[in-house]
Amino acid sequence: MSKPMIEVAQLHKSFGVHEILKGIDLTVHQGEIVVIIGPSGSGKSTLLRCLNCLELPSSGTVKVEGTSFSDESGRYNEKRVARLRTEIGMVFQGFNLFPMMTAIQNVMAAQIKIRKKSAEEAKKTAEKYLTKVGLAERMNHYPNQLSGGQKQRVAIARALAMEPNIMLFDEATSALDPELVGEVLKVIRELADEGMTMVLVTHEMRFAEEVGDRIIFMDKGVIVEEGKPSDIFNAPKHQRTKLFINQVLHPESEKV
């Protein structure tokens, strides 16, 4: 097996009295594409957000390339967390582009501020990644002048420009009009082909089946089942997985 990029051990996360994650163990290896599926409220987004420490674990550890987010005394030092986050790119459902910056400025900002690159260097990198996501023509547009699909591609370019080793996608296509989903999936698929380590939360089952090396089915804060896409989608072992997959693939059928 290639080297582990993310190691999650006994991860618990509670919001108040609600325990959202109830002991998650997960290892993601280099170049692996892990897709997390599950009903809403299953904790899949929370798990993803724990992977780059946007949510602090209530207990348990998350390691990135062997380094834990918490320091030796178990505390979450902000500088340490921020430094580790630069190794992980994240793409959000709501794009979260910076509205006062043009597309290229969005992609340049963190390179200059965090990576301490010069403006020219940052610009070069930004151009490279905006071209990669097919937006060379739209570099000087503001977010509100772009379509949803274009915004999401800028967001992907912005994450890639930090040259992370891992990419996280949190329902990256859920807020898009159906006709714009394809252009974003295409970019993600290209990244997959290039061997980027990725963890995706998605409702696009066909896409999950196609790009995923491993599918993780979550429900009620635990990993119910995981395995190869062909196994999970065609021969799920657990009843809950069966029900869920049946429901998403045939939404018109009655609930059992």
Partner: peptide, 18 residues
């Protein structure tokens, strides 16, 4: 300001203050 703005910045490696 939408919380997503801060989260996007944090995910890029900004500290809360930055």
């Amino acid at each position: 300001i939408d919380k997503g703005q801060t989260e996007a910045a944090l995910a890029l490696g900004y500290t809360h203050r930055q």
